[in-house]
Design a protein around this nucleic acid. Structure first.
Lengths: 188, 188
DNA sequence: AGCTGATGACTGACTAGACAGACATCTATA
DNA sequence: TATAGATGTCTGTCTAGTCAGTCATCAGCT
């Protein structure tokens, strides 16, 4: 064998991409991302074949990271509302702790560079979250609405709440609670 | 006097831009927009100084158009819920009738090319809608939540509903109703 | 009404700059 | 020493915006 690729550099590139996308948008040059990651321009392309590949991988990774943060320490024996609230607040915490990742994810989500396959992978990464939401849906007013619709609404209320929390961080806790109450009213 | 600018060409460029943005995203070349509008490349720049200017004007125009469509024929004497429902269904109708405009507006809304001034103008164009929503907020559970938050939630639930309606047009009416019911549950 | 000159819209080839990705070269590891 | 990662310069391509020349429109004059 020869020199192995370094997982460290890969991560550096991904997290640099998140930061740069958050501040400059998706039009950001690969050169800037590489520089921010502390590697040469060409190195970026030994880890990701194209710019679009990097963006797709980043999208899936961020979705997975947020989902995993949301589910961490889930009180599986508690009642549904408690579990949902845990999930919600952990998602909001993640967004407040990593604002640049949240912003990057928001940009990537609306980009047409993101393939159907990546979106599917993103969904899959959220399956734990979806399962809980599915339980909430099945027992409530929205039992006849398609699951995709409920997911879309949760995501959009979540996005709106995160947006508002970052704009007005002083009252972040209050907004998080208000957002959850709104979601819960939608579901029950 | 000389040859006057034609309102017709201006409109052609704007609506071409909406179509092209919907299908190719914001990275679409101005050359393509001009061609789609049936004018020369350079002509676009006699009507709009820069590409960003075109996008900003288009953003405000689309916001205004949607707001105006929503308010058309509003039953001002009916009760609040009826008025809100009128507004909601007309907005959804507009989105279903002009899917390319809706898609373009969604893209423009998240773009960082759109100035604060344009966003303010967009808000202003929606003031009729906002007034109605304000009444709904003031009398309901969200009376203590900031208006901006309520607006954000309405927009996001609306976006999710529109998205779902275009993805599943057969049940569009049903989804529109479900979306409204969800919003109303949030507000009351 | 017909003519004329001034104005400015219209055109599309062109330019300057930016950027993704390639590549020749160097370097670290097995 | 063979292999493969790392580097950074280089290049082909793409595109926003320009510009010199053309043409449509209008006001004022006869």
């Amino acid at each position: 064998m020869a020199k192995p690729k370094s997982e460290e550099k890969r991560n550096a590139i991904m997290s640099a991409a998140a930061r740069v996308i958050a501040s400059q948008g998706l039009g950001a040059p690969t050169a800037v991302i590489a520089q921010e990651a502390g590697v040469a321009n060409g190195t970026l392309f030994t880890y990701f074949e194209t710019k679009a590949d990097l963006f797709n991988e980043l999208y899936v990774a961020l979705k997975a990271e947020r989902a995993s943060a949301s589910l961490k320490g889930l009180p599986v024996t508690a009642d549904l509302r408690k579990q949902m609230f845990h999930l919600w607040s952990h998602a909001m915490d993640w967004a407040m702790t990593h604002p640049e990742k949240r912003r990057a994810l928001a940009q990537l989500s609306v980009s047409d560079e993101i393939s159907e396959a990546s979106r599917a992978a993103g969904h899959k990464a959220m399956s734990g979250v979806a399962r809980l939401l599915e339980q909430s849906r099945a027992g409530g007013v929205m039992r006849n609405a398609p699951m995709g619709f409920v997911v879309a609404i949760m995501n959009s209320v979540g996005d709106a709440t995160m947006e508002f929390m970052t704009q007005d961080p002083v009252n972040a806790k209050k907004h998080a609670k208000a957002g959850f109450d709104a979601l819960w009213r939608v579901l029950t």
